[in-house]
Amino acid sequence: MNPVRRLGRAGLNFFERLGRGHLFLLRVLLNVPGQFLQLRLLATQLYSVGVLSLLIIGVSGLTVGMVLGLQGYYTLVDFGAEESLGQMVALSLVRELGPVLTALLFAGRAGSALTAEIGLMKVTEQLPAMEMMAVDPYRRVVAPRFLAGLISLPLLAAVFSAIGVLGGYFVGVGLLGIDGGAFWSQMQSKVDFYDDIANGVVKSVVFGFVATWIAVFEGYDAVPTTEGVSRATTRTVVHTAFAVLGLDFILTALMFGGI
């Protein structure tokens, strides 16, 4: 094949997949309301997608918060503004690092697992068998996982930020000797509920939507072979990272950039 044709083919494939992805999303969304009638399935998925991600999110949040505390202190101290450390740590986490890092970790921990699980169900003919039994895999398999991801990610991001703030406190107040009262009061007066926290929550909801969509779609669309599933799993992590970072720029520009 000559390069021009190859480019054309790649372009067509890209748009075809994009179209399939959106039709897939539509069918998933149509099945989301019905999930509240099968709460056991949803609970199981919330456990494996959300609860089992808590450890990695907690540990990462703590380390990131501690590093922010250290790095922030050395910059702020030059201006005699080390009392503002609380504000700096909280704003970085709530507006930016919490949603973004949680989404990236989520893709690696839960997203890849979702893709592999759904892909393997396809390989082992569990999805065709389900359709043969007149049970819709969208309703039974895909939608509960999608909804669980959608609910989990914003909560995980909140946990990440909260633990991160504690990490910053531990370093700033515990190790570097900043006044604890100043740390909290600066944070309280400078972090705005709507401008900062609500915008951060919006980000994490958007990331949760995109990250879970990519994960379940890659699984459902995987070529039903061992190799196909492993490729799909890789794609989940890579595509989620790109999507989250790209969307983060756009959302940040819209929310905080005054564009």
Partner: peptide
């Protein structure tokens, strides 16, 4: 399909 039963070659049990 509710009135059909199929035994898959691979079994296809839900893991």
């Amino acid at each position: 399909r509710k009135r059909m039963g199929m035994m898959f070659q691979s079994g296809a049990l839900f893991a």
